[in-house]
Design a protein around this nucleic acid. Structure first.
Length: 404
DNA sequence: ATGTGC
């Protein structure tokens, strides 16, 4: 192992010859990996890239530095083809990360953590008709899907109150209305049951095969993308109101699980954010900074950038190794001084910062390949995953015990 | 990542 610290984004030369991505031909499709040799990429994930590249109609697979194995298809990749493969987008169609400015008089993590609302409890349009979060609604609920609306979900999803840390590009940050010390809500969530239902309907008939009627799939897919974006707005509004703040429009909202038609091909993104001339929040972990970047990825990279740090360990490994390595208290109070609200101990271990790659290395790889320029970091203050047992209503605690 | 079954 090298003791040499990896290059910090701020220390990168502004214009340097970008190293070529490592590219290999796999039949007609190429696979390009946008990661430096120091970035450890699991061989299973690379195998998945080559399996995808070998599918009928594939033209190119671009692997991001946060690449890791997924269910059938790799996570952290942009994949182009002449046919549409729903499984390459996966079940959480419309999943993405949004950043909302928020103003609070004081930001004491201990006090604010206790005020987060229960985001496992859905907003019911009738029962909760008076909830101020509905103010973000413009038009109808996509697909009329009200189930799970306003809930964050599980896995790597979260709602985080964070503070702008290092500002690398003050002019760019300023255009976004951001300066060092400002507070933001970072929301990572998707389309909950809706996307899952859409993929399942396809899979039941066609398995991992292409969409027989791409237009019909895309119509449902687009609903899920809109639903995911609405859900992130509702989540931000719920939290903002609970913290006594106003909601604003997101300054960034990028979906990293979707398919688009581009240059006459289907461009599938799975854990890869649109990176062509837009700003993206590349999520770190619940205990490290995240990076807001200006992305400028070209066709070789599938016009995409990484969506986060990327898992280094499977959930099973993280749970097993985490239990030996960390205490629950250590994971609830992180190295950057933030608090993690998570009443689910297993999830806490699965999502431990040590289960993820170093975000600094992922960002360094994006810079080295000229895919993105860091604008600012966000430093977590409170990350909400799922209600704390202590603060959950009594009936929820009982339900939680019944699950064991 | 999900809803569902054990």
């Amino acid at each position: 192992m090298s003791l040499q610290p990896s290059p910090q984004p701020s220390e990168q030369p502004s214009r340097r010859e970008s190293p070529p991505p490592s590219t290999a031909a796999a039949g007609p499709a190429t696979v390009s990996v946008f990661a430096s040799p120091e970035s450890w990429i699991e061989s299973d994930a690379l195998d998945q890239c080559h399996q995808v590249a070998a599918l009928d109609g594939m033209t190119h697979v671009a692997a991001m530095p946060d690449l890791h194995p997924g269910k059938g298809a790799p996570i952290g990749a942009a994949m182009t083809s002449t046919v549409l493969y729903p499984f390459l987008v996966g079940s959480d169609i419309g999943c993405g990360i949004a950043v909302f400015p928020i103003r609070l008089k004081r930001a004491v993590p201990e006090k604010l953590a206790a005020r987060f609302p229960d985001l496992d409890r859905a907003l019911d349009p009738e029962r909760d008709a008076g909830d101020p979060a509905w103010a973000v609604m413009k038009g109808d609920i996509p697909a009329g899907h009200t189930e799970g609306l306003g809930t964050v979900g599980r896995g790597n999803h979260f709602v985080e109150l964070a503070r702008i840390g290092t500002v690398f590009e003050p002019g760019h940050a300023s255009r976004l209305g951001l300066a060092g010390g400002d507070l933001v809500l970072v929301v990572h969530s998707g389309s909950r049951g809706l996307g899952e239902r859409i993929l399942r309907a396809h899979t039941e008939v066609h398995g991992a095969g292409p969409a027989a009627d791409p237009a019909a799939y895309l119509a449902m897919h687009d609903d899920a993308v809109r639903w995911g974006s609405l859900n992130r707005r509702l989540l931000a509004a719920r939290v903002a109101h609970a913290l006594g703040a106003e909601t604003a429009e997101p300054i960034v909202d990028r979906c990293h699980n979707l398919v688009e038609i581009r240059d006459g091909l289907y461009l599938h993104r799975k854990g890869a954010a649109p990176g062509d001339g837009c700003d993206v929040l590349v999520a770190g972990t619940r205990g490290t900074p995240s990076y807001l970047v200006a992305a400028h990825a070209g066709p070789d990279a599938g016009h995409s950038v990484a969506h986060g740090a990327g898992r280094k360990m499977s959930r099973a490994d993280a749970l097993r190794r985490g239990r030996a390595k960390h205490t629950v208290e250590e994971l609830r109070r992180t190295p950057v001084g933030s608090l993690v609200v998570c009443g689910d101990r297993q999830l806490l271990f699965e999502e431990a910062p040590t289960a993820y790659k170093r975000i600094e290395q992922v960002i360094a790889d994006l810079i080295a390949h000229d895919l993105a320029t860091p604008v600012a970091t966000t430093i977590p203050l409170v990350t909400y995953k799922t209600p704390d047992l202590g603060s959950a209503p009594r009936r929820d605690r009982r339900r939680e015990r019944g699950r064991r």
